[in-house]
Design a protein around this nucleic acid. Sequence first.
DNA 1: TCTCTCAATGTTAGTGACTAACATTTGAAC
DNA 2: GTTCAAATGTTAGTCACTAACATTGAGAGA
Lengths: 184, 184
Amino acid sequence: MSGRAERTRERLLTAALELFAERGYDATTAGEIAARAGVTEMTFFRHFPSKASLLVDDPYDPLIGAAIRRQPSGLDPISRAARGVRSAWRELPSPAVAEVRVRLRIVAGTPTLRASMASGTAATEAVIAEALTSGGTGRRDAIIAAAAVMAALNTALLDWSLSDSEDLGQAIDAALDVLEDRHV
Amino acid sequence: MSGRAERTRERLLTAALELFAERGYDATTAGEIAARAGVTEMTFFRHFPSKASLLVDDPYDPLIGAAIRRQPSGLDPISRAARGVRSAWRELPSPAVAEVRVRLRIVAGTPTLRASMASGTAATEAVIAEALTSGGTGRRDAIIAAAAVMAALNTALLDWSLSDSEDLGQAIDAALDVLEDRHV
DNA sequence: TCTCTCAATGTTAGTGACTAACATTTGAAC
DNA sequence: GTTCAAATGTTAGTCACTAACATTGAGAGA
């Protein structure tokens, strides 16, 4: 359980964030990141499956799944998913929120990364859909509700990351209200 | 206005669809497509900005935008967008529907293409959001509603492309009902 | 302290999607 | 038939990512 790999991973990550801040994501090559971390390009790809994965990865899938399962089963799938997502994000400690913001700002400003983000949420969608079906929703409706809620959430997150005044909870609530509270 | 370029484009497209059917999308290179079309790889990229663009492109954005603008402005954004999308797809002639199905089947079975599809809908989302704001919806809510509706639509389209029994209108209606008619 | 061993890294070589700069051909108007 | 521009070819490159094999390093036991 040597911490060597872990330290290398850390160095790669900070080197990448530095370089992204200096020249931007697209103008930074995987080789340059590796070089700054004192390592080979190969080693980079052994720690990260792709360049995009440095910025887009959701470590919070289990949180969201559990939170959705906690919602009353009488609700429609959109509401269950939306409320679960709301409560899951509220549990996040603020340093984690700050870190998410740093990454999302880069993502928001890089079209290629926005694409990666959309595709990277497939796993989260599956988790949401699974949580919904375990609550009695049909599989088809569950998948659709999951996709819609994730799309709304991602849009809200990107928007929030760029506007520095607002807090995260508000942004998520506003986005999911568009799906949930639709009268007028 | 020579039709030469147009013919080359056609040849590239049919060559690509043949090769995708034979060996699959990932196992087909841009060079092979070009070769079968009797052309250079360079020429391929002059006609298509990417390999994925052979399959994922929405020529129906204007249709959708217009259909949304036609919806009564008293409705909430989700309903306006959803009903617009419903009516736009109904206008599509059946040969076009059949062609869409062929392409979507390939997309559905290729993870990399599913990702491209998600990102390729950014333009359509913008069109929907624009149509919504022109109907009085705030820009932020419009973007979120557009993202949610497109996510639901894409999910429905991919699912439909694989299930050969159902017709397209039903699939879209079922998907958008999850967003619109949420009581139980 | 020495060795042994396996994980972590390095090396080399390649594929494939794109891009840029410049040369060549083709088609159609005149 | 000449001309001019669009369409294509040529060449050369970048960069993300992968595979196969060699090498190093750090910790466990003798």
